[in-house]
Structure formats: structure tokens, C-alpha cells
Lab assay of single mutants.
Amino acid sequence: MAAGGDHGSPDSYRSPLASRYASPEMCFVFSDRYKFRTWRQLWLWLAEAEQTLGLPITDEQIQEMKSNLENIDFKMAAEEEKRLRHDVMAHVHTFGHCCPKAAGIIHLGATSCYVGDNTDLIILRNALDLLLPKLARVISRLADFAKERASLPTLGFTHFQPAQLTTVGKRCCLWIQDLCMDLQNLKRVRDDLRFRGVKGTTGTQASFLQLFEGDDHKVEQLDKMVTEKAGFKRAFIITGQTYTRKVDIEVLSVLASLGASVHKICTDIRLLANLKEMEEPFEKQQIGSSAMPYKRNPMRSERCCSLARHLMTLVMDPLQTASVQWFERTLDDSANRRICLAEAFLTADTILNTLQNISEGLVVYPKVIERRIRQELPFMATENIIMAMVKAGGSRQDCHEKIRVLSQQAASVVKQEGGDNDLIERIQVDAYFSPIHSQLDHLLDPSSFTGRASQQVQRFLEEEVYPLLKPYESVMKVKAELCL
């Protein structure tokens, strides 16, 4: 049975990233139509530049190519590739079939990587351009969430054990800070992308030097003109047959890092959902379990974690691919890159769409948070109580021993009897502590235990987050809708 299948058929496997999760716009960027249309555009740009620099290419040939950029006979191309065992030459023939007058000058002087690699770089750039505003929107939604809850005390956790208090907004800023680093890295790697350009079979530009009869300047002009037509500021000066596969490492490393950030955020949300302090959106008709109707599973956060793990592992592909590119190139890269580049971007696209949807509907339960604080705060307040007693004339050592005994009794009630923490009640009825009984409410005010959390939130948002989001103001209103 021949390899390949009808990918629109229910009898043929289709990647869930495309069929179930990723956005239509990201799927289109990695589609065959987008790819092969870009090949034709690159052939047109090459012909236009070659004509401008004096090669015998007519206006009629150029116009014929322009008129057929979208006229792609995919069936013919597939048949040609089956016959020739070469995808680029299959599309040269297919393009030439609908451009008979231009057929002889299509791909003039070029090698397969002229269309293959340059198209990949265009796709990487455009895919990054799709991700950047999506990530900015996630940051914006979380920034709104953090600002609104900047002063809401909550129990902090280290080692997932109760620690000092923080605020809900401050905790959210930990998430935002990681995503801001990801946004900066995505922008950097996007701006650092260079075009492969017009380089020939081993990167020496020998074929173009021959076409222009040894004119170095025209060869350099050709490279520059096509690079500018493709919208790049610069091209690699040095290439082998391909652009260095280190570029793929750079791009997928940034995406993998984004995956790590999203995994951490969504894990926190899942843990908070278990504590009943916070939940992701839950639709009115949504079913959490087929057997347990009360369940409210954090399905979206779980999906993000599941896909983020996949995204983090994909960076190993370009690392290994770059390491086995012998001399000017081997074909070890080809099949692998067809999979890992598309999957990385479709996965990143999915987790950003999902995280935006989550961040637009996060639900906080202040009463649950308050109750958990009441359970733990008495123990945390013991040092403040000791200091207040010393100020009232008591002995630190005597007070410490009193607190120690009462704390152990209260802990026994919590752990052995399943009761509430009654340390404060014990202190309130103990005559030894009568000098500070009137101060206990103040000493137990949760806001006095959150330090500068709310001020940190305000400063972080104003100095770091809002300036970073400013270039994306025009796209901030787009909502994230999930079908599944």
C-alpha cells in the first residue's frame, strides 16, 4: 500500500493539533497551500530580480507567473513527485505547466533550498508574528487579574506546605514575570531571523556568478533584492546548502521555554482548584465526569500541561538535527523538520489560546482563602504575639514557653481530632496574655502579614508589564474561544 493518505478522510490519521486544537490561522501558515504558494512567490521574486539585473526574462513571463501564483494543481504535483521522487522539481514542473512561456526560467540558477529553506524562514517569521500578540493578550488578562487582587491576602506555599502570606495578585505576578520573559525572547528570536537568500547549491553562489558572467556586484544585488522582497532586513552571508540548523534550535528553545512557563502556571491553577481557592472557567453544560456528576475538573489547565510537556520535548529534535548536518548538509534534517517545526508552533498556539481562555474567566473564592488563612495564621502570628507581650512588660522566655504549650495543644486538636485551630481562643482565655487581649485582632490582621506584596504588584505592572504590552494595544480586544 502506498504511503500517505487522504487526510480529510475519517479513515486516515490526522494530527489532533490540526484537527482538534490549533487555530485556523496557525494551521494555514503550515498548510501545503501556504507552503507551495510561497515557493511560487519566491520563484517570481527571483525572476523579477534577475530581470532587473539584466537576464533575458520578459515582462510577459513575469506576468504569467504572477497570474498563476494561486493556480496550484495539487493532484498534478503529487503525481509528479511520485514520478520524480523530488518535491521541488515536482512543483517546478507543475508551475511550468500553467506558465508555459515562463517554464524555462522558473528556478533559474537556484537549488531546492532556495524555495525550501527560504519558505521555512518566512513561515517561522509569520508563525512567530501570530504567537506574539496571543502571548501579549494572556499577559494582559493576567495583569488585569493581578491588579484587581493585588491586596487580597492568601496563604503562600513553599514545598506545598503553608508559608508566609502573600497576595493573590502577587502570586499571579510570578506567572506574568515568566511570560514577559517569554514574550521578550519570542520577539528577540523573531527579529534575529535572517533570510537564507540566493546562495546556490553549497552556499557559494557559483551558479549565479556564472549567470551574471562573473559580476560579483550583481550577485550581491540579486541576494539583497530577493531578501528585501521577502520582507527581511538581512540575509546570511555564510550558508551551506541550507541555512544553519542552529536557527531551528533557537526558535524551538524559546517555544519550549514558553511551554515550561505555561505548565507551571496551569499546575498552580490545578492545585488551587483542589484547594477550592480558584477555578478555571466551567461552562453551564460542561460535564466533569461521566460517573461523578459533582466533579469540576480543571480540564483546560490539564490540557495545557499535557501539550506543554510535548512542546518542551520537541527542542531535542533540532538539537540532534543540527549535530548531524555533515559538511554542507545531509538530508537527516528533512523529514524531522517537516514534523517538529509545525508541531512546535501548533502546540504553542494551542496552549496560548487555551491559557487566554482560562485567564479571561478565572474565578476566585475569597471566603475559602480566608478560612485557610484562619487555619494557619495563628501559628504564624506567634512571633508577633511574643513581641507584643514583651512590649507590655512580659518575659520573652516565659511567653515563648506559654505559646509553645498552647500551640501544641491547638495542633493536637487540628491533627488528632480534625478540629479547627483554636490557638487564639486559648490565648484569649489565658490570664497571662490579658495585657494584649485587646491587640489580638490587630495582630491577626492578614494584611499585616503580606509585606509589600501589593506595592510590588503595582510597581511591576507599571514599570515592566504595561510598557512591554504597549506595541500590542491594537490587538488586545480579541477574545479566545474554545470549541473543545
Rank of each mutant, 00 (worst) to 15 (best):
K367F: 05
K134H: 13
T354E: 03
D129K: 12
R303A: 03
Y365V: 08
S140G: 13
M76I: 13
A127T: 03
G197E: 04
C305D: 04
R374K: 12
S454G: 13
E425Q: 13
L211K: 01
G109S: 03
I436L: 07
I139A: 08
E328A: 04
D32Q: 14
S434H: 11
Q63F: 13
V198Q: 01
Q409D: 08
S261T: 13
L406M: 14
F74M: 14
L406Q: 03
D215M: 13
K402P: 00
F236P: 06
Y294A: 03
E250Q: 07
D120V: 07
P298E: 00
A344H: 02
S407G: 09
L121A: 10
Q325G: 12
Y365S: 07
V405D: 12
T354Q: 12
F28M: 12
T154F: 06
S31N: 01
R83I: 10
F345S: 12
I436K: 04
L55Q: 14
G109C: 02
L461Y: 03
R190H: 11
H7W: 10
S448F: 13
Q356M: 08
A102T: 09
D59N: 13
I403G: 05
D191T: 12
Q51P: 01
G197K: 02
G231E: 08
G96A: 12
E376G: 02
L135C: 08
A127F: 05
A431V: 10
N68M: 10
P467G: 09
Q164P: 02
Y114M: 03
M278Y: 04
S9M: 14
F232T: 02
M26V: 07
A381I: 08
F236C: 05
Q241H: 00
S434A: 11
T242L: 06
N71L: 10
L468Q: 15
L484V: 08
L193D: 05
L314K: 11
R372A: 05
E228W: 15
C340S: 14
F36L: 12
A103D: 14
E60L: 12
G451C: 05
A344R: 03
S253R: 06
G109K: 00
L469Y: 06
H97T: 12
K264A: 07
D59V: 09
A136R: 13
L362W: 03
G231D: 09
A410E: 02
S301A: 08
Q416M: 12
T167F: 04
E360P: 05
H437Q: 10
A2E: 09
E425M: 11
A49N: 02
S447W: 12
R396C: 02
E279F: 03
E283D: 14
L179N: 02
M387I: 08
N71P: 10
H93T: 15
S12P: 10
L152E: 08
R37K: 13
